[in-house]
Amino acid sequence: APHGPGLGYRELNCDDPETEQAALAAVDYLNSNLLQGYKHTLNQIDKVKVWPRRPTGEVFEMEIDTLETTCYALDPTPAANCSVRKLEQHAVEGDCDFHVLKQDGQFSVLSAKCDSSPDSAEDVRKVCPDCPLLAPLNDTRVVHAVEAALAAFNNRNNGSYYQLVEVSRAQLVPLPVSTYVEFAVAATDCVAKEVIDPANCNLLAEKQYGFCKSTLTQKVGGEDVAVTCTVFPTQPVLPDGTNGPSPMVASAAPASPPAAAVMVGPLVV
């Protein structure tokens, strides 16, 4: 349809409180629908156009930059309480395009598209020449470190056997020679002490996810594994046809403060 008078967009300052409200609603939506990786936080609003919407309301067309936090996607900690990943830890940014509807004073997300990318090695080196960079998640040393950490965790665990959900981050540390990994796990119907073949174990209907951090250090004649896992409160059974980690939708999983998280460990083996 041809553009007529009054059909143009409204320009708004990127730091206008109304723009910020729309951006925060967009980032909340993003974090509520993550299936893997880490929660993100708002870093900068790049562009905003506000379009009139018929019959009522306005649509905020926005470009937003985000930064990765240290909270895993399924961690119930509110994103506002999560620390931003530091440059020295090899930060990751998100580039997002959103359409956010404002109607009756309420914001709701109509569309979202985000891509994330790690900081360049060159930039990390500028702030920290000796800091380890992010390693490919399929690196054999990474895979081995995760397997060893998961085995160590299950060996010390008197409850359910936990299986790997995803490896979310890894770094190869030069001195002492070690591999640092972060990964997500989920409880199964097997008892950790009695597992013979993990392939026969199934995820519980009431999903219970956990998040682990581990360092595998090479030593003369062997290796040391230190692993710490935090198990999150269980998530309610989802309707049939829903597979994999479920989004932490507010209505489906009430946000709990970190103190309410069930702590398993820390187990240091």
């Binding site: 990127c14 730091d15 870093n43 790049d46 930064l67 931003v84 930060a91 930039d123």
Partner: peptide, 27 residues
């Protein structure tokens, strides 16, 4: 005081509405 009609006077620094402020750091 001599005024030159027709010469625009700068009204201060130009305000750039976008992009907005950086909350943490830029990478």
């Amino acid at each position: 005081m001599v005024a030159q009609p027709g010469v625009a006077v700068a009204a201060g620094p130009v305000v750039r509405p976008c992009p907005g402020r950086i909350r943490h750091f830029k990478i």
